[in-house]
Design a protein around this nucleic acid. Structure first.
Lengths: 227, 227
DNA sequence: CGTATTCTTGACCCGCTTCAACTCAAGTGG
DNA sequence: CCACTTGAGTTGAAGCGGGTCAAGAATACG
């Protein structure tokens, strides 16, 4: 992993900073660069003509953003910074990076297959779960993914830089209804979510309510990067 | 592409056949092999404890199935054959295939990024579109992807081996409601779908109804494999 | 402080689900 | 050749989950 990062570093141009609420790129723009998220939270989204928005995924540091194999392909989604973020842009095709470092192709495949698995979980959640289950599912997923970044460190307390509108756009619900579901989860003593601060009070019941199968849960817990 | 296929061929074990309706693998099973679909239609799905099913994607020949970077990882989804299918299993990690053929990592990344883009489209459709739009979206996607396999050949007539139940499980609807939407699309003279045979009568209105943006449509039309 | 987001809650409404009955086509075995 | 079965498609009636609209409270921000 560190060797790979060093190889990348030789090719990477200067780091770039994007402020919270700004776009790294917008849907429909041509995309020449690939970015790796170094610091902060971002999310991928698509827009429909009438303004409807769907959040596709939330990304944590180490995620690869904007990989499109076809040169100058049009992006079908955008990336917005949730917090102030730092990204490193680099260019795979032009530099022939992978010819000198053949393992990079596999590393990329690794990261993409991880994103794909998360997208599938998200898909199943939106397609077949009730509003309450979807909200529980998303909170649980974000909580576990975030906690994985500090293994051994048992935080059941987490800063989530999301509005209820974000949660709605991610789960296919309205912000109003997300509010009702959150209040319900809080009233039941399962979570606490105030001032963008999430605390899991009753993990077992949350897992139960989120209708996640044990092996799906396991897949979130797997390491975040190849050895 | 052909060179890559030949390289794979050297490592591939014997082809395997799976009958329509049978499982290539089930959710929750450990997965040692990767499959490439050679012939036929299949679909990926997840199950919930209470029997709810969500279809994650439909796969056409050349798709890679079951890529899990972690050795012996548990699959979180299953693959079922829609028609009789032929697959070639091979084992990436054990054979060190990619060390001798470094381009394979990139090819895999290419295929995965394509699957990811499709999953994102699907996600947005389920999360934010109405029942009518979702059904139109799915039919349009399958139609275009299928037609891409015979470039130049203008078929507006296609064998779709799906029940209305399948369409429901893919779009997050019930089979009953899918029926109502299909009847509606037929009554409007936009499509014809009988005896598992789909014909697009009015492509423009279908695109309009499916609420697909032009650049998303473009992304479906891009070639199905790297040069 | 005043202004702009975000959150919160209630009332009403509609799209989709549920349940159920019936049709239709394709087997299957007597 | 025809009863019997089985799975898919079709349609109607009723109920409910989540959307929509709207107004007010709380919090963040300049």
């Amino acid at each position: 992993m560190t060797e790979w990062l060093r190889a990348i570093a030789r090719y990477k141009q200067n780091e770039r900073q994007v402020k919270a609420g700004s776009q790294l790129f917008r849907p429909g723009e041509p995309c020449r660069e690939i970015f790796q998220l170094v610091e902060g939270w971002a999310f991928l989204y698509t827009l429909f003509r009438d303004g409807r928005r769907q959040i596709l995924s939330f990304t944590l540091p180490s995620a690869v953003l904007g990989f499109h194999p076809v040169q100058d392909a049009i992006t079908t989604y955008g990336v917005e910074a949730l917090t102030d973020i730092v990204v490193t842009p680099y260019n795979v095709t032009a530099s022939h990076l992978y010819e000198r470092h053949p393992e990079i192709g596999m590393q990329l495949a690794w990261l993409l297959s991880r994103d794909l698995r998360l997208a599938f979980d998200h898909l199943a959640s939106i397609g077949r779960l009730s509003a309450r289950e979807r909200v529980a599912h998303l909170l649980l997923e974000l909580f576990i993914r975030q906690r994985m970044r500090w293994p051994g460190h048992q935080i059941e307390d987490l800063h989530l830089p999301l509005t209820q509108e974000h949660i709605g756009d991610a789960t296919g619900l309205t912000g109003v209804h997300v509010n009702r579901m959150l209040r319900d989860l809080m009233k039941k003593g399962i979570i606490q979510f105030q001032y963008r601060h999430l605390r899991i009070l009753d993990p077992d019941r949350l897992v139960e309510l989120a209708a996640v199968d044990p092996y799906v849960l396991q897949s979130w817990i797997e390491p975040g990067a190849p050895s």
